[in-house]
C-alpha cells in the first residue's frame, strides 16, 4: 500500500510550463493517450492538458508577490470524481492511490470533472473520454526505465526541482518530509476530499545584514590612504 502524490514548491516555481508540456508530451503517447488538440493551428486552439500552470499576484502594489501555481490531479483520498462516476471508468487504485480513468469504459458525461474542484480532468475532444493525470503510472513502474527516471514526466523535467514525487504514507519519504518541514498545504481542504498533493508555501524573504559602517567616514577622496599591497 502506498499513497503516491506530488509536492509542488511554490517558493521556487518560476512558471516555465515545462511540467505542463512534459506531461502533454509523455501522455499523448501514454496509457491514456492521445491528448487531442482542437484547431491546433487555427483560431482559439484548445487541447487536452493534464497539468496547467496559472499565475497569481498576491497583495496590492507596492506590497505584492507573484506566485506560479501548477495544478494537476491531487489524487484525493476521498475522490469525489470517483464517487460520482456512473460507469466505473474512474477509479482509485488500491495499490497506490492513483486516480485513473479506464479509457475503454468512460462515456464522457463530464460529471467527474464537475465533481473535481481542481480542474484536473479534461474531456478529450476527439476521443470523447475524460483524461487526467496518471502520475505517469506507465513510467513509475516501468522496470525497463533507469531507476532514476521512474518518475512522473513533470517531476523528471522540472528545471527548479519544484515538483517532488513520492509516497505520503512513508513518513521518511521526501514528500512527507518536505510537507512536514515546510508546512505543505492541501488546496481547498474544506471540501473534504483529502487531496494527497501538497503545496509548499513561499519561504520567508531572506534577510541579509547590512555592513556596519563607521559613521565618521566621509565622502571625500582625501580620506583614502594607500596601503602597501604587493602585486
Amino acid at each position: 500500500m502506498a499513497k503516491l502524490g506530488l509536492v509542488v514548491d511554490l517558493d521556487t516555481c518560476v512558471g516555465c510550463h515545462g511540467c505542463a508540456t512534459a506531461c502533454k508530451q509523455w501522455n499523448t503517447s501514454g496509457t491514456i493517450g492521445p491528448l487531442s488538440d482542437k484547431d491546433p493551428y487555427g483560431r482559439d486552439p484548445s487541447g487536452t492538458w493534464l497539468n496547467r500552470v496559472r499565475t497569481y499576484e498576491v497583495g496590492d502594489t507596492p506590497n505584492s508577490k507573484t506566485v506560479h501555481m501548477p495544478m494537476s490531479c491531487m489524487h484525493c483520498e476521498d475522490a469525489a470524481c470517483v464517487t460520482v462516476c456512473p460507469t466505473g471508468a474512474s477509479y482509485k487504485r488500491k495499490e497506490d492511490g492513483i486516480v485513473l480513468v479506464d479509457q475503454d469504459k468512460c462515456m464522457g458525461c463530464n460529471l467527474c470533472s464537475w465533481a473535481c474542484p481542481y480542474g484536473a480532468r479534461e474531456l478529450d475532444p476527439q476521443a470523447g473520454t475524460m483524461k487526467k493525470c496518471t502520475l505517469c503510472v506507465d513510467r513509475i513502474y516501468d522496470e525497463k526505465l533507469p531507476q532514476a527516471e521512474r518518475q512522473p514526466a513533470c517531476v523528471l523535467t522540472c528545471p527548479t526541482s519544484s515538483r517532488v514525487f513520492g509516497d505520503f504514507d512513508d513518513p521518511n519519504s521526501d514528500v512527507s518530509r518536505l510537507t512536514r518541514e515546510r508546512g505543505g498545504q492541501q488546496l481547498m481542504p474544506e471540501l473534504g476530499y483529502n487531496p494527497v498533493n501538497t503545496y509548499l508555501p513561499p519561504r520567508n524573504k531572506k534577510v541579509v545584514e547590512s555592513y556596519q559602517i563607521k559613521p565618521s567616514l566621509g565622502a571625500t577622496l582625501k580620506q583614502w590612504v594607500n596601503k602597501v599591497i604587493t602585486r
Binding site: Y56, E57, V67, Q185
Partner: peptide, 21 residues
Amino acid sequence: ATGFTQASVRLLDAGHSAGTF
C-alpha cells in the same frame, strides 16, 4: 482556493490564451 488568505489574490495568467475544456 489558492491558500493565500492574508492578502488580495488576482489571476495574472491562466496559462492559456483561448478557452479550454
